[in-house]
Design a protein around this nucleic acid. Structure first.
Lengths: 181, 181
DNA sequence: TGAAAACAATACAGATCAGTAGTTGTTGTG
DNA sequence: CACAACAACTACTGATCTGTATTGTTTTCA
């Protein structure tokens, strides 16, 4: 399978999984939406769970690249470097069809069922926590609060599904700026 | 159906929904685990989604009672009144089988499928935000940060599934205490 | 051009899904 | 005791689930 076709398949699968959930999205729906035959799909992914893992791994890599880019751009700006990452949340949470964090959604659905999926979500969150810690120390701030910053980050994403994010984001960036003062 | 039996049924359904997810939990599994016949179940709940809504509504009432109790107990203690609510999270997140927030999990699974379930999660989060705002103003603090406090609260719950909550909770209560100073 | 792999389409297997019909207890009430 | 209402059980419907077998076509690459 060409890389482009594989990407197209993963695109379709990710969109359906994200919108409708993992258990509620049948392989038939992915087949119908992607045009790729079920036989072919199962030739490249042993099971549906393997496809889900591939979707999640690709999405995690993409998210990490994006976060790295945002973190690099703000280098030397103190707490504003963190605030820039939260600013980016505004766009994502307000995008149509926003349904929270793909990885946390997956972890919730597979909590008692597929440890590999939960572990992937765990690693992804740990990576973000480490990024936050690095940013904080590089900017001369207290790196120990990184876990709390991550909680804020994930909390805003979770709430963004059912609430406007602006109030939380506003108070949050105020906090982050207070860190610098 | 007696109230006790209804409660027992909702207990079983809630436990299965919480552990395995809503779509992954079949009505047959609830029947087998509760001993209540499927006919009876469908006599009292028109559809599976109605059962889910009943489970969520009961759980939301229980959670609100618990939060109200914690909020009342800390009256007059300033930011510590909020910190007490976060302290309670420690126990919940460390309990075996902890799988995040039942309402956010439900909202994620039914986001594109059942607006009533999403709306219930929305109302529950709004209620908590209002509680936090009331506590903050009653304690002479800035009520406008309530949405951010809620984000912290929900973020810790979301992360509690895949991470130890202690670091985030520690930094978080430090923040809350700094609010008082 | 020819061989080999990958592909699509269809049909199917076996299990499970939500939900229902009908019959047999079982229980509470006059 | 007799009656009425509810609950349990079994069995079933039709749909949908993951995953596979089959067959034939297209692509690829030497």
């Amino acid at each position: 399978m060409s890389a482009a076709k594989r990407d197209a398949l993963l695109d379709v699968a990710e969109a359906l999984f994200y919108r409708d959930g993992f258990h509620a999205t049948g392989v038939d729906a992915i087949q119908a939406a992607s045009g790729i035959a079920k036989t072919t799909l199962y030739h490249h992914f042993k099971t549906k769970d393997d496809l889900i893992l591939a979707v999640l791994e690709r999405a995690a890599e993409r998210a990490r690249r994006q976060l790295d880019k945002l973190a690099d751009a703000g280098r030397g700006r103190g707490a504003a470097r963190l605030a820039a990452i939260f600013d980016d949340l505004r766009n994502e949470c307000q995008a149509p069809g926003f349904n929270g964090c793909l990885f946390n959604n997956a972890a919730a659905e597979f909590f008692s069922r597929n440890p590999a999926i939960v572990a992937l979500a765990q690693r992804h969150n740990a990576w973000i926590a480490q990024l936050f810690a690095r940013i904080l120390t590089e900017e001369g701030l207290n790196g120990a609060i990184a876990p709390a910053v991550l909680a804020l980050y994930e909390g805003i994403i979770a709430l963004g599904r059912v609430q406007p994010v602006e109030p939380a984001l506003g108070a949050c960036t105020a906090w982050l700026n207070a860190l610098a003062g």
